[in-house]
């Protein structure tokens, strides 16, 4: 440790510079991550617009649906999710891995597509695409567009459960389950999950 005042000042300056550089590197990493997420989101939106155009050009959903049955790669846009009251408009991509969730809410592989018979599970980051999901209330209207058709849903249940709680269940009727981490504003790994369940109306 420095014993003279000059040495102490030099040590403080050096440590301060080091900390500033380290902090800048951390902020740069966070900024890069956020920029990558925005870029991936824009790409997913552009791809979804292309898919919609191809579908229209092919003369309807049937052809697109047949093609989709042959295989959906991870990260491929599969649906669109809109909650007008929350100003939420996101393109859902296939898979809930880290890479997919950069681009948008992820459709859990093995679950139904929104509008198909069964439980359709969609998850997203609480600090990105589902930032506003914490404000959803029972009775809110959700709209989805996918190969299974355009569906209007109503929120029937909103609950917060522990991260280890088994919440995924099969359904014989169309069911939409949106999940994200809870609390929405929280540093580190969130201890709970926000589960929003909606059923089709009309």
């Amino acid at each position: 440790m420095p014993r003279t005042p000059n040495a102490a000042r030099a040590w403080q300056r050096g440590a301060g510079t080091l900390l500033i550089a380290l902090g800048a590197a951390l902020l740069l990493a966070a900024g890069t991550s956020a920029a990558r997420a925005m870029l991936a989101r824009d790409l997913a939106r552009a791809r979804w617009a292309e898919i919609e155009a191809e579908r229209a050009a092919a003369g309807g959903r049937l052809a697109a649906k047949k093609a989709a049955r042959e295989g959906i790669a991870r990260g491929t846009p599969v649906a669109r999710l809109l909650v007008s009251r929350l100003d939420l408009d996101e393109v859902i991509v296939e898979g809930v891995g880290d890479v997919e969730l950069y681009a948008g809410p992820g459709h859990m592989i093995g679950s139904a597509l929104p509008g198909e018979r069964g439980n359709s599970v969609v998850s997203a980051h609480r600090d990105r695409h589902f930032r506003s999901l914490g404000e959803v209330v029972v009775g809110d209207t959700i709209r989805t567009e996918s190969d299974a058709g355009d569906v209007v849903w109503t929120v029937m249940r909103v609950r917060v459960v522990s991260a280890n709680t088994p919440v995924l269940r099969s359904s014989r009727t169309p069911l939409l389950t949106l999940t994200t981490c809870w609390p929405i504003r929280y540093f580190g790994s969130a201890p709970d999950r926000l589960i929003v369940e909606a059923v089709p109306i009309g």
């Binding site: 966070a30 991550s33 956020a34 898979g95 809930v96 891995g97 969730l101 992820g106 859990m108 592989i109 093995g110 679950s111 439980n119 599970v121 998850s123 997203a124 980051h125 609480r126 600090d127 990105r128 589902f130 459960v161 991260a163 280890n164 709680t165 088994p166 919440v167 995924l168 269940r169 099969s170 999940t179 994200t180 981490c181 929280y186 580190g188 790994s189 969130a190 999950r193 589960i195």
Partner: peptide, 16 residues
Amino acid sequence: GEFREGGRAPDTATML
């Protein structure tokens, strides 16, 4: 990360 009966909701927390 794949759907199964009685599964848990995926961890969507980020380090950002």
